[in-house]
Amino acid sequence: MIDVIFDTLIDNGLVFAFALIGGIMLIAYFISRYLTRGHVHGSAIAIILGLVLAYVGGVQSGGENGIADVQLFAGISILGGAMMRDFAIVATAFGASMDELKRAGSIGVLSLFVGVILSFVVGVVIGLLFGYTDAISLTTIGAGAATYIAGPVTGTAIGATSEVITISIGAGIVKSVLTMSATPFIAKYIGLNNPRSAIVFGGLLGTTSGVAGGLAATDPKLVPYGALTATFYTGLGCLLGPSVLFLIMGMIFSM
């Protein structure tokens, strides 16, 4: 009997994921309304519940895809994979205003460059504090502090050790997870309540998943603006990391 149920759920993974995520949303909104009296937004709680599931799944399976590595929940990887994520992000543009986007175009570009360089410098400083002094390792860790894709792309291009590349991926994931969960709580202190600041936020933080999740839990209306700039961030990080930033690092630190 149990086998029949399990097999049905596994064979219909995506449909099971719809039901499961619906259940998580229900629990999250219940917690939001009755336990926090509406102070913490339901979607913020839902995302944190999702991250907790990801942790449990990761410990259980030893894999890299959170709960989706547990066979029963594999359907979650379709619903929460890059394809559906990007599809839904593009769909949010339906509610975006052309005028707002035009008005904030140049500040979006500025925030992208500031965002990549800022994360990079912060990553380099932390790397120095932990005792790394060579240009290759520092550049890789700095790029990882930008995003978990820019880190390994840069590290591989300039020949970093696998240990350093792993650290750079870890830094990027920490950034993404923290942006997802902390943004709704910080939003009101940094003026994140209008399309302009959302565009700046997307350009500065740059992790697509983090920005997408963080803004969803803050105010879904802001999502298209932040997501728009964030999707250019990883590309810019991969462009600057192994080239300009590495050259500058090479002038300051030894190889």
């Binding site: 995302i47 999702g50 599931l53 959170g66 989706a68 929940f73 929460g80 969803a216 879904p220």
Partner: peptide, 15 residues
């Protein structure tokens, strides 16, 4: 979008 983002969160490599 939000349900998909929740599913995405459940897919993250938190460990």
């Amino acid at each position: 979008y939000i349900p998909i983002v929740v599913a995405m969160a459940a897919n993250q490599n938190v460990v």
